[in-house]
C-alpha cells in the first residue's frame, strides 16, 4: 500500500534522490508516494533531474560553429556538438537525443540527434514520464498500437507525436499524467482505448 509523504516526514528509505539524513534519521525531502514494501519514494511533483543516458526531446534554438543550443524546458543549458558539418539542422527543428555528459552540473551535452519532422509536441510533468513509459515500455506501446501514433518521449517532459489518431493519443497521455498515482491505471487506459477503437469501427 502506498501512502503520501511530505517534506520533513520520517521515512525508512535508501532512495538517495528523494531523502536526506540528519542526525542518523532519514527524512523525505519531497512530496511523494512512499512504498513500504520496497522502501522507495516516487516524487509527485518536481523538475527534471538529468542523468547520463536519458533520452530527451528538444527544440534547436541556435547554432554556432557546429554547436547547437537546445530548448528542453529546463534551467540547465543543453548543447549538441555535431561532427557532421555537411548536414545542417535548422533553428526551430525538433530533435530527440541522448545525454552523453553533464558538465559542472550546469551544462547538458547530448549526442546521437534524431530529427523529428512534422508532428505535434506536447509538454507534461517530468515526474510523470516514468509512468507514461510504463514498466518495460508497456504503457507507451499500448497507446501507440491502439491509436497508430508514433510517440517519442523525452525524459525532460516533452513528447512528440505523429501520424494516426493524434488527438486521442494526446488525451490518453494527459490522462496518464493526471492519474499516474491512482492504482489500476493500465486497465482504465486500456478500456478507454478499446472503447475508442470500437466506436471508430462502427
Amino acid at each position: 500500500m502506498k501512502q503520501i509523504v511530505l517534506p520533513g516526514e520520517k521515512v525508512d528509505s535508501r532512495d538517495r534522490h528523494n531523502i536526506y539524513v540528519e542526525h542518523s534519521t532519514t527524512y523525505s525531502k519531497v512530496m511523494g508516494l512512499y512504498d513500504k514494501q520496497n522502501n522507495s519514494i516516487i516524487p509527485l511533483e518536481g523538475t527534471y533531474v538529468p542523468h547520463v543516458g536519458d533520452n530527451i526531446v528538444g527544440i534547436i534554438e541556435s547554432e554556432k560553429n557546429g554547436v547547437y543550443e537546445l530548448d528542453i524546458q529546463h534551467f540547465d543549458r543543453c548543447l549538441l556538438i555535431s561532427d557532421r558539418h555537411d548536414e545542417l539542422i535548422e533553428n526551430g527543428e525538433v530533435i530527440s537525443a541522448t545525454i552523453r555528459d553533464i558538465e559542472n552540473k550546469r551544462t547538458i551535452i547530448v549526442e546521437m540527434p534524431r530529427r523529428l519532422r512534422g508532428g505535434v509536441l506536447i509538454q507534461v510533468k517530468p515526474t510523470k514520464i516514468p509512468r507514461i513509459i510504463g514498466r518495460n515500455d508497456t504503457m507507451a506501446k499500448m497507446i501507440s498500437t491502439y491509436t497508430g501514433t508514433h510517440i517519442v518521449i523525452g525524459m525532460n517532459g516533452l513528447i512528440w507525436l505523429d501520424g494516426g489518431d493524434v488527438p486521442h493519443a494526446i488525451e490518453a497521455l494527459l490522462r496518464v499524467e493526471r492519474e499516474a498515482h491512482v492504482e489500476g491505471l493500465t486497465n482504465r487506459i486500456k478500456l478507454m482505448l478499446e472503447e475508442w477503437k470500437n466506436s471508430t469501427k462502427g
Binding site: 517534506p7 520533513g8 540528519e22 525531502k29 519531497v30 516524487p43 509527485l44 511533483e45 518536481g46 523538475t47
Partner: peptide
C-alpha cells in the same frame, strides 16, 4: 513550495 515539488527539509 511543496506543491511545486521543490526539495526542502521541512514544511
Amino acid at each position: 513550495l511543496a506543491n511545486a515539488g521543490i526539495h526542502m527539509k521541512d514544511l
